[in-house]
Amino acid sequence: MECNARSESGFTVISLQGEVDLHYSPKAREIILKHLNDKQHVLVDLSSVDYIDSSGVASLVEGFQHARTHTLKFALVGVSDAAMQILQLSRLDKVFPIYAGLSDAVSQL
């Protein structure tokens, strides 16, 4: 898994790439929570995620709940088919704010 963060239009965009499984999800969780703890609004770009398991999804849920508690913006963007499948199976596609692309999220959040 590759994971990087950059600033864009008032958000921190965290891009997850490759396979986000139990081996790598702690790293994703750490980066997401680090930026939220720094009071940054976070967009997680899942467009290059080939595989994500329930531990990776748990990291996203934790970020979402942390953001909501601290009145920060948090959304998923460019969700790949592989990531969307597990979100739908978990019914979390109705919970997370999800946007097709970064520009959509930035303009609507």
């Binding site: 329930s54 999804v57 748990a58 990291s59 849920v61 934790e62 979402f64 199976l89 978990s90 019914r91």
Partner: peptide, 18 residues
Amino acid sequence: DLDKVRPGGLGIHLIQSL
């Protein structure tokens, strides 16, 4: 219960669904 949004605890649901 999937209506309770929390991290974790999805494994069995996913296996049974798939």
